[in-house]
Design a protein around this nucleic acid. Sequence first.
DNA 1: CACCTGCCTGTGAGCGCTAACAATGATGCC
DNA 2: GGCATCATTGTTAGCGCTCACAGGCAGGTG
Lengths: 362, 362
Amino acid sequence: MMPITDRSLMSQTAGRTGPRKAPTMEDVAQLAGVSHQTVSRVLSDHPNVRESTRAEVLRAIGQLGYRRNSSARALVTRRTLTLGVVACNPTLFGPSSTLFGLEEAARDEGYMVSAVTLRRYSAAALREAIDHLSDWGVEGIVVIVPHREAVTALAELRLPFPVVTVEGGHDLPIPVVSVDQRLGARMATSHLLAAGHRTVWHVAGPPSWLEAEARADGWRSVLEEAGAVVPPPIQGDWTPLSGYRAGQELAGRVTAGAAGRGSAEVTAVFVANDQMALGVLRALREAGLSVPGQVAIAGFDDIPEAEFFTPPLTTVRQDFAALGKASIRLLVSRLESGTTQGDDERVVIEPRLIVRGSSTPS
Amino acid sequence: MMPITDRSLMSQTAGRTGPRKAPTMEDVAQLAGVSHQTVSRVLSDHPNVRESTRAEVLRAIGQLGYRRNSSARALVTRRTLTLGVVACNPTLFGPSSTLFGLEEAARDEGYMVSAVTLRRYSAAALREAIDHLSDWGVEGIVVIVPHREAVTALAELRLPFPVVTVEGGHDLPIPVVSVDQRLGARMATSHLLAAGHRTVWHVAGPPSWLEAEARADGWRSVLEEAGAVVPPPIQGDWTPLSGYRAGQELAGRVTAGAAGRGSAEVTAVFVANDQMALGVLRALREAGLSVPGQVAIAGFDDIPEAEFFTPPLTTVRQDFAALGKASIRLLVSRLESGTTQGDDERVVIEPRLIVRGSSTPS
DNA sequence: CACCTGCCTGTGAGCGCTAACAATGATGCC
DNA sequence: GGCATCATTGTTAGCGCTCACAGGCAGGTG
């Protein structure tokens, strides 16, 4: 775009420090000896402008440090070129990576993105966030709130602009971009079964989260197909602490299992995310159990730390940046085409199993 | 704000699904039987409006699902109520927490925030990011790029709007909000010395990062004051992998030290961030060294995982959310006062030492 | 009863830009 | 030479809103 440092050359009395008004298109026009419309044409790369005129206008623009007023532009074109994002739990690795992939993609497409973050999810908070974004005239929004009720609430809101969700569930008439959580869970569980374990336990995420549900579902389906016992999943809340508690419970069962109880032995655990897996690892270690010797572990997400856990964590990698990119592409495509229809569009990204020491003997 | 669900009640032929134009203030005025100006007065809480009129206008607003056009408003008021943020490495815990604290604070103050993220830092990328934000008419920006050259480049850019930096260094005429990194490093180092170690080694961050420098400086100052040997700092790049490599080097020295070499013994290490500390922990374990038995470790940041490392990591907690809030307050205050002066304003937030098992015998 | 003083409301201008149209001159063709 | 054609430029009218100002209509005062 235009240089922004040349303000010092402005055709005003130098030294006057007051908040001098930004130059307008008319100012540029006068300096270049043309009409404001010609300036506009230069700025929008209109073909029918004589080369010498264009040069003169550009010179004037540079000299004044002129920038188009985006509000005036938006007013007349009815395009704010701004997209909104609503995100929840945004300090976690997944959401923040998605957010930044998304921002980058939007910038490449010529849009600005404004994000609103929810500390905790509630239908009211979601509505408020969307209201806030609407007030600023976003042309469309991406919702990264993989919460069952959230998506339901969203579907009921008939918004005057397109909406795309990330991990928003497939059973609603809203376009969705997602990683195949179920497949990821299946890969992890199969991997553990293939290593010879009779069955695989599961530390699940909060049940209201769609991802938690899909992962539990994938895990269960593999066990059932293999004719293995399906142990009761242990509930966590994504935090390392909850994983730690779940790990303590599992450790207790290992000991009890040795004494020969009815339930399935704990020799392998698929944990619904890496942070909880960290807690599980710790609890098992404290209980004197070796990983993967006595219990094999797999996680989900592949956070940057996972490779350096003790032992390094086998996990399912999600390409969050791709998620963000895809959601923007979806949103922008409906913006440009002007459709609000085709609300059942789906983009699914395949996860990848990363095998490390927590599931295989070193 | 206004409800956004009542669109269905719009006074248009129901069922027509075309992209019907959003209602304007004039539409509301006609429906309420007043002038557009009265509608404006109601919307801006002007006192001189009869109660019955106000009610009638509000009813009309609700019925039409009217929302003020932000572009038109911005055009005439010359206020976009939008702030820009430039952030680097935004998937790390620190930057993303800051960003979200900042967004929340901005929302409370009635501003929208638009973020631009830099994959890697370069002066050109920074300029481009700021250009992008200027094009969208931000009223001010917060720069979270704790890179020496970045801040220097920033100081040279004479921007037409206020700028605040987070962790931007204190030797430039730009307002800064920061955690006292030096103090944090001093606390960690002192803590280790107090536990009886003769000296403390250091795994540092990249030297171009201001935080890395301040932490190294704090560490060095404590050692010097205590008359302890100052071992050569080992360079990392914030990643767990670089910590792992540093850990291997340190482990090598422990063994060599036992053989009685000239340099200081490695019994305590202050690592410049938690992710690298994780790598160090792993390398030491692989070398068969016990933490904290043979080597005590302290980190920096207190990421959520730190408590569940093996052993739990002693570290320095930074209040990132407070950083974000403070930077917005600083920015907004100069916006409202209209000053570009007072460029040496400083807000310093105190860190807090969190002692856990990695530095104290359990 | 004329007057001033508050409240409440409406009118008009214009923010800086783009889109549609009009105007100009140069060029080509019959 | 007359006329259509094209490239280039200028003119005008808004986009939807806020601000400054001008009324009208009540009540109080001399």
